[in-house]
């Protein structure tokens, strides 16, 4: 789905009232009781709690990826909460940048949230983990989220070759060409649909889990959000819209 920035902003302003109220509240960020960090856009459970967005720091190994998503969510005016641990509150959109998903409770929590109707963007930090951490993450992600990863590939080992094309091609939710981040994690998944490829490798996919949707990336997008890559920003904006659309559909089916 392609959408212009103008359309996105227009759409965002028509999100449920709680979004707008929260986004315009101008509240000073503060720590939440759950150990998280509340942002201007945070709002308490209410009429629109289904549209709640969580930015999760599950042992994020690339700070700039986390910052990229944070600034993009902020720029889009979407209310979100930053937290380091599982939240007990409902969330329609969950973003997990550069995650070292090596704890069973995290993976299980994510699965339950997605199954309940959330859209989760999980960015694998697999390429930046030790071999043992990568094996553990792969095992958890495979068993809980149905996504398998091959060993990370260093794309620039033969730097200087004319054949090096430093881009990942995304096809969903918007077509986008985004720089690689030196290493990619090839992916496969049960009943999964590829959404991003680097050459012949699938490095991004989506799959339905219960009432929700998992979007799993083997090539980080967050750092490119931080550098102002327009295609990366457009891709993420479209994903935000998809998450909202998915939640509306999930609500209808309840």
């Amino acid at each position: 789905m392609g959408i212009s920035r103008r359309s996105f902003l227009d759409y965002a302003t028509r999100l449920p009232a709680a979004f707008a109220i929260a986004a315009s509240s101008g509240a000073v960020p503060r720590f939440s009781e759950a150990g998280g960090f509340l942002h201007a856009g945070h709002y308490r459970a209410g009429v629109a709690s289904a549209q709640r967005c969580l930015l999760l720091n599950f042992s994020c190994v690339l700070d700039e990826s986390f910052e990229g998503y944070r600034t993009s969510l902020q720029a889009a005016g979407l209310p979100f909460e930053i937290t380091r641990r599982e939240s007990s509150e409902a969330a329609s959109f969950i973003v997990v940048p550069a995650a070292a998903l090596t704890e069973l409770c995290h993976a299980g929590w994510l699965r339950n949230r997605i199954a309940a109707g959330a859209t989760a963007l999980v960015e694998s930090a697999g390429a930046f983990l030790s071999a043992s951490e990568f094996r553990l993450q792969n095992s958890l992600v495979s068993s809980r989220l149905g996504v398998s990863a091959l060993a990370p590939v260093r794309l620039w080992e033969n730097a200087g070759r004319l054949s090096n094309i430093p881009y990942v091609d995304f096809t969903w939710p918007a077509a986008a060409t985004i720089r690689d981040f030196s290493r990619v994690v090839p992916l496969s998944g049960v009943a999964a649909q590829p959404i991003a490829t680097q050459g012949t490798r699938v490095v991004g996919l989506k799959r339905r889990l219960g009432a929700g949707m998992l979007v799993y990336l083997g090539s980080p997008v967050g750092p490119h959000l931080l550098t102002g890559d327009h295609e990366a920003q457009r891709w993420f904006e479209n994903l935000c819209l998809e998450a909202n659309r998915g939640q509306i559909e999930a609500n209808k089916s309840l």
Binding site: W156, A159, S182, T227, D229
Partner: peptide, 13 residues
């Protein structure tokens, strides 16, 4: 700046 790590990233970091 290298072919792998582009200018826009290098500048910010």
């Amino acid at each position: 700046v290298t072919e792998e790590v582009p200018y826009q990233e290098v500048y910010r970091r």
